[in-house]
Design a protein around this nucleic acid. Structure first.
Lengths: 121, 121
DNA sequence: CCGAATCCGAGCGGATACTG
DNA sequence: CAGTATCCGCTCGGATTCGG
């Protein structure tokens, strides 16, 4: 099990920062959160600030259905459920990194364009 | 001005075929439509089957605001307006192609996973 | 601790009609 | 031709509550 996730790893990443999206609103962030190893439900809930259990469950179920991750439930008290990327899910990191590289290179241009457009109105 | 766009260039491209999305629902397709050169409003409306003028206008305005394309209106009767990618907009093709390559490689796995999940319920 | 169930507001995107 | 104006359904995502 890898080191704890930084609870602030997504602060300062508003939607405008990722013009390239993977699937729905949360899929990409979940993939990132699982990049360094399997994680528990609560860990994901913590790092994905503000996500409700319902939405997190929905997102995880959809990704499980698409073969992007696996769900492993241990029959213990208290219960423990662990999510882990499949090879398919991990392969998403490649196009995601391409998107991140684009953002690093060009996001400031996009922000500037938006600013100067705002100024012209 | 390049050759006419194939009206069917997006048929057979349901949302499931593009797990990687650029911005909103239409941005990526508009970028593709403008890849080979500037296009008129009606041309875009034709290839983007089913898009209403309102939504197309909104999408184009948003992309213009973000510096992804330029809008050029000629003062003629009948009116003529031409949209063209900026360098910034064209640079989006790079991460988009990365996404397409991912889809070509792995989409069948995703479809299979979805099928076998359906079978297990 | 890990969800399921229920309810709900907001906004995206669309249908339709109309205009310079 | 290239939009604008108006109306609206529907889905996304969240709040809250409850259960095993």
């Amino acid at each position: 099990m890898p080191e704890p996730l930084d609870p602030d790893m997504f602060t300062g990443c508003p939607p405008v920062a990722s013009p390239i999206r993977i699937g729905d609103k949360w899929t990409a962030k979940i993939v990132r959160s699982l990049e360094s190893g399997p994680r528990r439900f609560t860990e994901l809930q913590t790092v994905l600030r503000g996500i409700t259990p319902k939405v997190l469950t929905e997102s995880l179920r959809a990704m499980e259905r698409d073969g992007l991750l696996t769900r492993t439930a241990y029959d213990e008290i208290p219960p423990r459920v662990v999510y882990e990327l499949t090879d398919l899910g991990r392969s998403l990191l490649e196009p995601m990194n391409a998107g991140c590289e684009w953002a690093r290179k060009h996001l400031s241009e996009l922000i500037d364009a938006r600013k100067s457009w705002h100024a012209a109105t």
